[in-house]
């Protein structure tokens, strides 16, 4: 009896989870092996030390390769139907279309709508202010050239990263919070319009399209013109030659050989 798609998808899921565990185990094993070699003494890397570690991991390497090939075989023997695409509508556009359909709201409804619109101005403004405040100290640190004397650049950059990256992560978290709050506000406003439409069965209002087209062609050809001019200047001022010279002299640390 042929298998149902549900069963096939379950088999694919289980197989996928097993492969995921193997991939993660392989990744962890590679990292542990690398750290083992690094901690084994001065000038730790050699063909012998790397070969020894790879031999220890041989089973995991074969298992990973087998899992990849197995996945292909499974797809051939038990093909699963492609998942149906789920629509992802832009909440702002959905709200605007409903607003156009709903017509004129009552005073109470208008007050609620105004409140939501105000909130959607306040959230990004507060986020921007907090983000800017977060960047003050990292900015002062980065623009103080005394912190980057070049004596030990790795330590200097690590110190700078420990100041900049947490601020960046907190900033991104604030942006995420802002989008969550904005989305909730859009949903509330959308709900108001849906209620209006349901209660009053309002007639659709013709949408006025007032979009001014962007002067794309002007910008395009301006960018092209500037690009050509810069390339020509670069050939004459020697920066083109520098690209060649630095590309043929490998700075070993620049590719991680250090």
């Amino acid at each position: 009896m042929p298998m149902t798609q549900d069963k096939i998808k379950k088999i694919h899921l289980i197989y996928g989870c097993i492969t995921a565990l193997i991939v993660i185990a392989f990744g962890v094993a590679m990292m542990v092996s690398c750290l083992d070699i690094y901690n084994s003494g001065p000038r730790p890397y050699s063909r012998e030390s790397i070969g020894a570690k790879l031999s220890e991991m041989a089973v995991l390497i074969w298992l990973s390769a087998g899992a990849v090939v197995g996945g292909v075989v499974l797809s051939i023997l038990l093909p699963a139907d492609k998942e149906k695409t789920k629509a992802v509508r832009d909440e702002q556009i959905t709200m605007q279309k409903l607003a156009a359909k709903a017509g004129t709201p009552t005073d109470t409804e208008a007050a609620s709508i105004r409140k939501e619109k105000t909130l959607r101005k306040v959230f990004p403004a507060v986020t921007a202010v907090l983000f800017a405040a977060l960047l003050i100290y990292p900015g002062i640190y980065l623009f103080n050239t005394n912190n980057f004397s070049g004596v030990d650049p790795t330590a200097e950059i690590l110190a700078a990263s420990l100041i900049v990256m947490p601020a960046a992560v907190i900033g991104l978290a604030l942006c995420y919070l802002c989008t969550v709050l904005t989305s909730a506000s859009l949903k509330r406003e959308t709900a108001i319009y849906k209620q209006i439409i349901a209660e009053r069965k309002a007639q659709p209002v013709a949408e006025e399209v007032n979009e001014k087209p962007m002067p794309i062609n002007i910008i395009r050809w301006a960018v092209f013109g500037v690009a050509v001019v810069f390339i020509v200047i670069g050939i004459f001022n020697g920066s083109a030659q520098d690209v060649l010279t630095k590309a043929v002299k490998i700075c070993t640390e620049c590719i991680g050989l250090g």
């Binding site: 092209f224 690009a227 001019v229 390339i231 020509v232 670069g234 050939i235």
Partner: peptide, 16 residues
Amino acid sequence: TKLPYYIFGILLLYGF
């Protein structure tokens, strides 16, 4: 020593 016109031009060209 010099402003990086060449690489800026290349990136603008590829972007365009």
